[in-house]
Amino acid sequence: MIKISGHLAIRTIQGRNGAFNVGRLSTSIGEFVIKDAVLEQHVEGKYRGEFVITEIRASSYSTGGRLVIEIRARLDSMVLEDLDALTAYDNAQIDTQSPDPLDEEQPVPTPPRKARPQPVRPARPASSPASPADDNAPFGMPVSPAAAPVTPAPDVDEADQELFGTVWPLGETVRLDSTVDRQRLRQQCQRLSELGYAMDFKSQAWNRAA
């Protein structure tokens, strides 16, 4: 584990799954590609701060008929201090053809559920005695069929509760868990923006706008 100061350039790229973030960390010991899920919460820009690196490894991908080899670093945590706009050099150092990390994370297949055997029910008689409600129908008028039960639409709060899980209920300040799957984290960030929250990169938390 290494704790080191540096600059993290984050660029937002549009992919087939939507927008995603890719970072490039510049330090005194080298430059590294960052694709950790924690980047999904931040806006595009160049951040200065301190970073805790737990792993450095080589990785590769192919795109457009070329093979790209990159050195990736995995972050344990970071403390960000300043934010500036990306320079032309920063943009040039981050490959816009970089694959979406979501595509690289292969989901674990879920085994299919076994169908439960249905109990055998006795055959229903052809005719059954009229219910007491049928006796109240006007003479000569057909009996109205029972109204089918209407399933209520899912409540918005229930959908949000399912999305945010242990983070629910949302307060004035929300701190997301970046260890959840990347797709859920993206949906949480999008929903927080819709609800009027903004990310504070210094506190690493979402605050409700006044």
Rank of each mutant, 00 (worst) to 15 (best):
S127R: 13
S62I: 06
A148N: 02
F51D: 08
D84S: 14
S59H: 11
V33G: 06
L163D: 00
V174E: 06
E50Q: 15
Q106K: 15
A73R: 10
M78N: 03
R113A: 11
R186Y: 05
Q106W: 07
K46G: 07
D135N: 10
G15N: 04
P154C: 08
F20A: 02
C189W: 01
R184T: 15
A92T: 02
F51R: 08
S26K: 10
A205I: 00
R182Q: 04
I29A: 08
L102C: 04
P117K: 08
V68H: 12
G165C: 02
R66P: 01
P107R: 13
P149E: 10
S127Y: 14
A19I: 05
Y89I: 12
I69V: 14
P109C: 06
P152E: 00
Y47E: 09
A126F: 12
S193P: 00
S59V: 04
Q97M: 13
I34D: 06
I4Q: 04
S60C: 08
L192M: 06
E172Y: 00
V22Y: 05
M141S: 14
A147S: 13
A73Q: 09
G30V: 08
V150T: 08
R175H: 05
F201W: 01
V79K: 14
V43L: 13
R16F: 04
V43C: 07
E40L: 04
H42K: 13
S98W: 13
P145I: 15
N136E: 15
P132H: 09
L39E: 03
S60M: 12
G64R: 11
Y47F: 12
G18D: 05
Y47H: 04
I34R: 02
R186N: 11
H7A: 14
E55G: 04
K3W: 10
D177A: 05
S203Q: 01
D82I: 10
P99M: 03
P117S: 03
S77E: 08
A205S: 07
N91L: 10
I2M: 15
I10R: 03
Y47I: 03
N21E: 04
S77R: 15
L170G: 01
V22I: 15
Y89C: 08
S28Q: 06
I34M: 05
D160M: 11
T179P: 00
P145N: 06
P138N: 09
V167T: 02
L39Y: 05
K114N: 07
D100G: 01
I2Y: 10
T110S: 12
G140W: 10
R113I: 07
M78C: 08
D181C: 11
L25N: 11
Q97W: 10
R116E: 12
Y197P: 00
P138V: 11
P132M: 11
G45A: 01
E81G: 05
E104L: 14
G45V: 00
E44Q: 14
E31N: 11
V79C: 06
I56Y: 03
A198R: 13
D82M: 11
I10H: 05
D177Y: 03
E70V: 15
G23T: 01
V120A: 10
R121H: 09
A147L: 13
E81H: 10
L83W: 12
S127V: 14
L163P: 03
L170V: 02
L163I: 01
P101M: 09
G171F: 05
A130G: 10
